[in-house]
Design a protein around this nucleic acid. Structure first.
Length: 255
DNA sequence: ATGGCTCGTGTAACGAGA
């Protein structure tokens, strides 16, 4: 079973890339973030024509998440139960017996911003939600745009980023809090090239100069972690014309 | 040097992203 995550930065613009990528990388599950479209405008027909199911939780202009899958998604839950949030950032479903949780975690803008406080509160709610989800389902995969670079090696220039949003100690503590629930960062189960990133700024030739960050992640519970056979970043779509600023991450589980 | 691109909105210029 191959599972993947990709922040597409507008599904309107990136639908051709998603379809092309799925054709070349026919994963079983693809979690998308930043759809930037309301549910009525979700391109369901195009996804179904490609042989996939889709469930989605979108809104106009901002945010929005979707799970695309070969098997029919079951027990679909939108948003975090009990957490009041106008922003559409979460969708979960059970696929092939795995509880798949797709998140677009708050960016936070800068550490002196109100949005940073929203990010920390949101991460507290996510920890509680994941704790109950793991208790309820057992086999859980948490995929998405975390907007957190867990370690300095996940940052192109750690010295320049000390204390900034995406790398600040409170954010990293929240990431560690997810690990302490029993989740494993599947990318780090394998040897990886130095300076492996999933996002590059559109400005200043960020991608060509590899000035990136690893902020998109696939975490799984321990029982699933024992069955992971590969995890990799696919930089190919970042080379395509008019790309998303993020590129897909994929993990394969032997189930 | 707090900009630099890209997106949606809406049809000019701005907020948001990270």
């Amino acid at each position: 079973m191959k599972i993947a995550t990709w922040n597409v930065n507008s599904l309107n613009v990136r639908l051709p890339h998603v379809l092309d990528w799925l054709k070349n990388s026919p994963v079983d599950v693809l979690c998308l973030q930043e759809l930037k479209l309301e549910d009525a405008k979700f391109p369901l027909e195009a996804i179904e024509d490609a042989g996939y199911h889709a469930v989605f939780n979108g809104q106009k202009t901002y945010n929005g998440v979707a799970i695309i899958s070969k098997s029919r998604p079951e027990d679909v839950v939108k948003d975090m139960p009990g957490y009041e949030d106008a922003q559409k950032r979460v969708i979960a479903a059970t696929i092939n017996g795995v509880r798949v949780v797709n998140v677009y975690i708050v960016n936070g803008q800068s550490i002196d911003s109100d949005k940073y406080q929203y990010k920390l509160a949101w991460l507290t709610a996510l920890n509680a939600y994941m704790k109950s989800t793991i208790g309820e389902y057992g086999d859980v995969a948490l995929l998405g745009d975390y907007n957190i670079a867990p370690e300095d090696r996940d940052v192109h220039d750690p010295a320049a980023w000390v204390g900034q949003v995406l790398v600040s100690a409170p954010e990293r503590a929240h990431f560690q809090g997810l690990i302490e629930l029993g989740l494993t960062d599947t990318f780090r189960l394998f040897p990886q090239a130095d300076k492996s990133f999933t996002w590059w700024d559109y400005r200043m030739n960020g991608f060509k100069r590899n000035l990136g960050m690893r902020i998109d992640h696939i975490l799984v519970t321990k029982n699933l972690a024992d069955k992971i056979v590969s995890s990799a970043i696919d930089v190919l779509p970042r080379h395509w014309e008019r790309p998303s600023d993020h590129t897909p991450v994929m993990t394969e589980i032997t189930i």
